[in-house]
Structures are given as structure tokens and as C-alpha cells.
Write a protein that binds this DNA or RNA. Structure first.
Length: 247
DNA sequence: TCATCACCGGAATTTACATCA
DNA sequence: TGTGATGTAAATTCCGGTGAT
């Protein structure tokens, strides 16, 4: 991005004359900046300076020893400087705050469209999209980062809700199994007068590994979790006399 | 093989702004 | 109409992973 574009994008026309150490300013990428900074001995105009932001950025560009193919790093550095200039602009007005970009509906829509296609961008795509949107590549990059974060958060919420429902289902299944267990125990230790099935007939079905010994009327495949052989396994009750291979 | 560097993305956090009671 | 609480999203910072040299 040309320095003039940066200045125009920021809508800045600052008056300034002083200088400000670059490393004191926050940047979009502190690591990139930290790697740049040691090689720099330049100082930047501050809020007190009388240079316009584009001029200041141009000054930085002259002093930054960058390769032409290092546009991403350059962009971050320039953005950092531009941000600094913006802060300086506010300071000029006695308001030490950064301005916040609000994307237009058109910009948001296009970003969303691109995100639907690819949730990440390569440098060329980023630059092209930035140009198309009249934004800085760094802004596009940040938007995609935040968008991915929002997507992940949304998915986490969905997963959480699913787990919650699953937990409720399992809890209910657990209650039901406890009731059945009590019934089975009653069968296993019946009063002599009401005895009708010997304890020995309660067994595990060899084919499905489910407990046998009572009618298989309470548990169906529909009301059990499909996977994993959960609580439903032991609850599948059947009579060894009526059990078939359908089990 | 190891060290260093550059780059990128994720996570956490900060901050500006909009909305609403 | 002014104000504080709150939510949202842009921006920042830090950190770890990875590939190139």
C-alpha cells in the first residue's frame, strides 16, 4: 500500500513537528515490529509534530530496509505507524483514544462471502480483497481472525447444547435403569409364594451381551444412544426362551 | 542436527462504539 | 435528554507451531 493510501484511508491530515520513538507505539504485530525495530534508529513525528501522517509514513518507508516481497511485514509496520499517527491525531484534539473502524454493510457482506468460500486467506487473496474493499490488508486479516474466533465460539455453543441434551438423556436412562434394577432384584429374591423364575435364568445374552431374564419391553433402540454401548447395553432385557437372532 | 528467523494463526484481552433501560 | 450498563466487533498482544536457511 502506498503511503498516500494509508493516509487517505485514515482520513488524516495532521499537523506536527516533533518526533516519537517507534517502539513506544503498539503495533498490529509486536513480534514483527520487534524484529524490525532493532534495525531502526529512526524516530517518528509525534503528536507535537507538524508533519502529515502520509509524510510521516513516507519517512518511515524511506528508513525501513525492506525487500519488495516483504509486503506483509511492510504493511504491518506501516499500519503501526498509521495507527500511531491516528493516535497522535486524537491527541492533538486532547483525546488519547484510537478510532475504531466500522465496516459498511457492503464490506461486511463481501467479507462474509469470502469467508464462506475460505475461512483463511493467502497473502494474495488478502491483498486483493483489501484492495476491493478499500481496506488495509491487516484489517482484512484481523477481520478473518475474529470471524474464525466467532465461528469457533458458535460451534462450541452448539456442541455444549448437544452435550447438555445428551447428559439429560443419559440421566433419564440412568434413572430408568435403576428402576429396572430394583425390579430385577425383586425378581432375584422373590417371596416364595410369588416365585416364578429362577435366578439362574437371569443371564447375559451371548450375542448382544445384554442382560437376560425379563421381557424386552422397556428398552428399544430408539430410546438409547446409538453409539458406544452405553447404559442401554445392560438394560436390554429378554427372555432366554423367546430370544432370537434379531437381538 | 541444531539455532535462528520470519510468518501465521489461535487465544485472550483491550478498546471504541452502539443500543437500551 | 443525559447516563450508566451491556453487548458487539475491531484491534492489540502474547504465544506456539512451522518451514526455510
Amino acid at each position: 500500500m502506498e503511503q498516500e493510501e494509508v493516509g487517505l484511508a485514515l482520513g488524516l491530515s495532521l499537523g506536527s513537528s516533533g518526533h516519537h520513538e517507534l517502539k513506544e507505539q503498539p503495533s498490529p504485530s509486536s513480534r514483527s515490529w520487534a524484529r524490525l525495530e532493532p534495525s531502526l534508529s529512526l524516530s517518528l513525528p509525534t503528536k507535537d509534530s507538524r508533519l502529515s501522517a502520509p509524510v510521516r509514513i513516507a519517512a518511515v518507508k524511506r528508513e525501513l530496509p525492506m525487500e519488495e516481497d516483504d509486503e506483509a511485514t511492510a504493511d504491518r509496520a506501516l499500519y503501526s505507524v498509521a495507527s500511531s499517527a491516528l493516535v497522535a491525531a486524537d491527541d492533538d484534539e486532547g483525546c488519547n483514544s484510537r478510532k475504531k473502524l466500522r465496516l459498511t454493510k457492503e464490506q461486511s457482506a463481501l467479507l462474509e462471502d469470502r469467508f464462506k468460500e475460505h475461512s483463511t486467506l493467502n497473502p494474495k487473496q488478502k491483498a486483493a480483497l483489501a484492495k476491493q474493499l478499500n481496506l488495509r490488508p491487516r484489517q482484512v486479516e484481523v477481520w478473518f481472525q475474529n470471524r474464525r474466533a466467532r465461528t469457533k465460539l458458535k460451534q462450541t455453543e452448539v456442541d455444549c447444547e448437544l452435550l447438555k441434551r445428551c447428559c439429560e438423556t443419559l440421566t433419564e436412562e440412568n434413572r430408568r435403569l435403576h428402576r429396572e434394577l430394583q425390579q430385577l432384584r425383586a425378581l432375584n429374591h422373590p417371596h416364595p409364594a410369588t416365585f416364578f423364575m429362577p435366578a439362574a435364568t437371569l443371564s447375559i445374552c451371548p450375542s448382544c451381551e445384554r442382560l437376560a431374564g425379563a421381557p424386552a419391553t422397556t428398552t428399544t433402540g430408539a430410546d438409547r444412544p446409538k453409539a458406544g454401548g452405553g447404559p442401554g447395553r445392560a438394560a436390554h432385557l429378554f427372555s432366554p426362551f423367546t430370544h432370537s437372532t434379531a437381538c
